[in-house]
């Protein structure tokens, strides 16, 4: 008992002396509880027959019914499939783009040229998704767009790109590369800048060409960075930029374009089936959580530094 009161006396003294740091932490803690942890509590609607009038806590439990409904729903299965495919394309095409770009920047000797090019290719990163969509829709418009104008020079009839399901994925991935390849190259450029210059000096003495040095020195040296970025990417695999999908897709292209988050948006926000949509979101969040944890474990193993 004496021990316990010692401890409480110590705590009291601690708080009396250090109350200011708790006061500094409190607003953020309250914010996290109000805006991020309360919704986690609200996730229970995924297992309930949610009614606006009864509220989150008052609605009756129905178990896994919504999940059953979801997995019997072709549209949901389609959205899972589309998310996976877009992610795979992203990994295949959008992931290597900034690495290649960084290697190319590294081979430019004229600093003025290099700086100028970098200034331009970083810019699209700071443009909003809505503007990106506006540019894409204008450029690919059947009558007015530049793409069809150029195709017209070669005698190709106008293509209704935005309503053709087979064009959605290339346009989506392509506009993503346009927006992010430049900015994402910064990480790899930083890694290249950290390569020991003496490696290049001895390679020059040995008569190695630029091309050989790139393959034998630069790429192996930045491999850890590439690996880390790849792991982060795998952790965020489900995070397809659904805002861009939302702005570019239309019912005619749902078959290739509809992803999990756009499905949730239509079911939940637009049709008011909050419980069903929350179930889809929970499924998404759990898979994402597993991916992130796996990625983190992998990164610990390979680099001995945790990502977080």
């Amino acid at each position: 008992m004496a021990n316990l009161s010692d401890k409480s006396r110590w705590l009291l003294r601690h708080f009396r002396r250090e109350w200011q740091i708790y006061l500094m932490l409190a607003p953020a803690v309250i914010w996290f509880l109000t805006f991020l942890y309360t919704p986690m509590y609200g996730l229970q609607v995924a297992f309930k027959d949610y009614s606006i009038f009864k509220g989150v806590a008052g609605s009756p439990w129905i178990g896994f019914e919504h999940f059953q409904t979801l997995f019997d729903n072709d549209d949901f299965i389609r959205s899972l499939k589309n998310t996976a495919i877009l992610s795979a394309y992203n990994l295949l095409f959008a992931f290597p783009a900034p690495i290649i770009l960084a290697l190319m920047f590294n081979e430019i000797l004229n600093q003025w040229y290099k700086k100028g090019a970098q200034t331009i290719v970083y810019l699209p990163h700071f443009i909003s998704t809505v503007i990106l969509a506006g540019i894409v829709l204008t450029a690919f418009s059947p009558s007015a767009g530049i793409v069809n104008t150029v195709l017209g020079w070669f005698g190709v009839d106008p293509i209704y790109f935005m309503s053709k399901p087979e064009w959605f994925r290339p346009i989506f991935i392509g506009s993503g590369i346009w927006q992010e390849a430049g900015f994402s190259s910064i990480v790899f450029l930083a890694a290249i800048a950290g390569v020991n210059p003496s490696l290049y000096e001895s390679a020059v003495v040995d008569g190695a060409s630029r091309w050989q040095m790139m393959w034998k020195i630069t790429i192996p040296s930045i491999l850890p960075t590439i690996l880390i970025m790849l792991i982060i990417r795998i952790g965020n695999l489900l995070e397809v930029s659904f805002e861009l999908v939302l702005l570019l897709y239309q019912p005619a292209t749902y078959v290739t374009a509809d992803v999990v988050n756009t499905f949730i948006y239509r079911q939940g926000i637009q049709s008011g089936q909050y419980d069903l949509a929350a179930a889809a979101g929970l499924f998404n969040a759990v898979v994402a959580f597993i991916l992130v944890m796996t990625a983190n474990a992998l990164s610990k193993r390979f680099s001995r530094t945790s990502l977080w």
């Binding site: 991020l36 919704p39 986690m40 609607v45 949730i264 926000i269 929350a278 979101g281 944890m293 977080w308």
Partner: peptide, 16 residues
């Protein structure tokens, strides 16, 4: 940090 790994998602956030 947990909020970076796990997110309740669109619907619970909106309802909240």
């Amino acid at each position: 940090a947990f909020t970076m790994w796990f997110n309740a998602g669109m619907i619970p956030f909106w309802l909240n």
